[in-house]
Amino acid sequence: MSKRYILLAVVFIGSAFGLVVLPDKHDTKQIPAEKFLIEIYNPARFLSTHQIAKRLIERDPSIFLVDVRTPSEFEEYSIPGAFNIPLEHILDEEWVDYLSQDGVDVVLYSNGNIYADQAWMLIAQQGIKNLYIMKGGVNQWFSTIIQPVEPPETASSEAFDLYAFEKAASIYFGGSFANIESATTTPIKKTVVVRKKKKKAAEGGC
């Protein structure tokens, strides 16, 4: 038996044993705290109710609304097309595919900002991108889209343009203006979730 082969055997077993004695590594999946802090202060993580309403009306397929409130609240009222994932279940394994779809903006909302923001922090830490919060939540949604308030006479023309949009959106979403004019709201189709495959199917490799 030549010395080289003994050396080879020692190297193999030694490097394999090295794997055994290596300390457990920390989870590198989470993004580092400094980077995360910058993202938290990035105002771009908020989307206004107007932006969302516009995209829903245009039937933008790249938006996925997630309602983080309780199921009972969700039953009571939800934005058309939204998907209910209660805050306490937001980290469950089964939702990973829903929340990390390629090329889809995931928008979280609750009644106000707080719960949606908490959900955002929890998921964003897992390294999921394209994650947004609907600013003001359902309350804001009601006061702007469902029951918009007419701006005072002295308001700027932009405010009136916005109001015109809000009125139209209100009709679309079956809000307070819907009954005035003929209600021709068409139900928005449920968002189809494209599940991202965890393991890429490289069928029949060989």
């Binding site: 038996m1 082969y5 055997a9 193999f12 077993i13 490097s15 394999a16 044993f17 794997l19 055994v20 290596l22």
Partner: peptide, 16 residues
């Protein structure tokens, strides 16, 4: 890691 370790030992045994 442990599987690899045992596999390495089996492999060396096979070589021998």
């Amino acid at each position: 890691a442990w599987f690899t370790f045992w596999f390495a030992i089996i492999a060396v045994a096979i070589f021998y």
